[in-house]
Design a protein around this nucleic acid. Structure first.
Lengths: 236, 236
DNA sequence: TTCATAGTTCGATGGTGGCCGAAGCATTGC
DNA sequence: GCAATGCTTCGGCCACCATCGAACTATGAA
């Protein structure tokens, strides 16, 4: 009679227009805030908050609190797979609404975010450290590996002083232009000040733009090279 | 805001418990009458009739009138695929409706999924064909290779009749219990009926369980051997 | 500190839809 | 013709839930 998992529960979650809009918007793979998702769904923030709580409880979303923002993304590839299959059934082509972030190109490239480097270059820094195994993610926290500590020391950052501080050494911070993770925490701050110290970059006085010199840009590119992730097998 | 594939409409159709029960019952591949489905869903005939009309209008069912009976079956493999995917999600979020029992074990071992073989044995069939190069995945579609066609013919399946049909020959279907692909499509159906024809297996009348005889199980194991499971990367 | 913004919670309202009893067709059998 | 069976439609009842205004909390900025 009643065999297998409760598909009605999950389907009912997706079955509301507002929630379906939210999930569809998240199919882009980018993390979006509650306010943005409310706009996407065409409902007020209160209503969206309720929907987001339900979707979260249903295991379809993965929320990340960041300051006073709360970013949501799909919980897994499996969720995206179900949504795509449903779109196929609905016999239409998924039309994705893309929302552009900051207009300023320089802001997208490199800017300061709570005293650490954000933007494309921040993401590159993060991904470079991650791809080389210098930092690793355990469940919910980011940890600096021994090899990473050596690298950081060699780069001229006094890691021991940082470790003594109360604030977490590593944190990942969601970028608001590209919506990908970059390095935050005291280590992130240390990297930025080291860049300034080395003369690679300087902060713009009035805006949040970080301007790299030509030499600094070059040095950054070689130091934080991101190895080609071509060997990774695309799942599905 | 209402543009694009209306996944909410489809999901809402599946999202009702009674309708979900109806669809789940039809996953067996057998066509069932309105009265039988009403029993299956645990509602009165009037209510079921309303549900069936909505499911039909939503394109999820294919009704066939026969005398004073009305038989329903799933509209397509795609519907079955969506349902299986939803089961995977629901099972993953740890919301199983049934406690694991002996019947559940048999279901995980071998069951029917819209007329093709699912469960561990279905996965084995799929992986065996895949590992030996009989079928291959191109971008989004599954294709039967020439060597595979020869194998299928030797196994006693009339491949040419199948190819003539408009429905896709091969399709992969995500298993909700093991979360791996198994073979669907008309070829998947042909394999299952061939198994029955050979006396290897027979379907349970009331459930979705497929019962293999001892000899059939043996023959299946040797015919669809999966070469060298050792070198495969431990996936998660 | 005070103000502004992001998000949550609460309460009230209204609409949608699931449900079933009863009546209405339709097909088969006598 | 009449009766029986399978299914559909109609009408009303009722529960659920999506929605939003307003109040509240939390974090960041001046």
């Amino acid at each position: 009679m009643k065999e297998g998992p409760d598909i009605a529960r999950v389907a009912a979650l997706i079955g509301d227009p507002a929630r379906a809009n939210i999930l569809t918007a998240l199919m882009s793979g980018k993390a979006l805030t509650a306010t943005e998702l409310a706009q996407e769904a065409g409902v007020t923030l209160q209503t969206a908050s309720s929907h987001l709580a339900r979707l979260d409880q249903g295991g379809l979303l993965r929320p990340r609190k960041q300051g006073r923002h709360k970013y949501f993304s799909l919980a897994s590839d499996e969720v995206a797979h179900v949504l795509e299959a449903l779109m196929g059934l609905a016999a239409g082509s998924g039309h994705l609404r893309t929302r552009t972030g900051p207009k300023d190109l320089a802001l997208r490239r490199a800017r300061v975010c709570y005293n650490h480097l954000a933007g494309e270059m921040g993401i590159q820094l993060y991904q470079s450290l991650m791809a080389r195994g210098f930092i690793a993610q355990y469940s919910d926290t980011l940890e600096l590996q021994p090899s990473g500590a050596a690298f950081v020391r060699a780069f001229g950052i006094d890691i021991d002083t940082l470790s003594a501080a109360r604030a977490p050494l590593c944190r990942d911070c969601l970028d608001w232009s590209a919506r990908q993770s970059h390095l935050a925490g005291s280590l992130g701050r240390a990297f930025l000040s080291r860049f300034e110290q080395l003369g690679w970059a300087r902060r713009d006085g009035k805006t949040r733009i970080i301007r790299f010199s030509a030499a600094g840009d070059q040095a950054f590119a070689t130091t934080f090279d991101v190895p080609d992730p071509g060997s990774e097998l695309p799942h599905e």
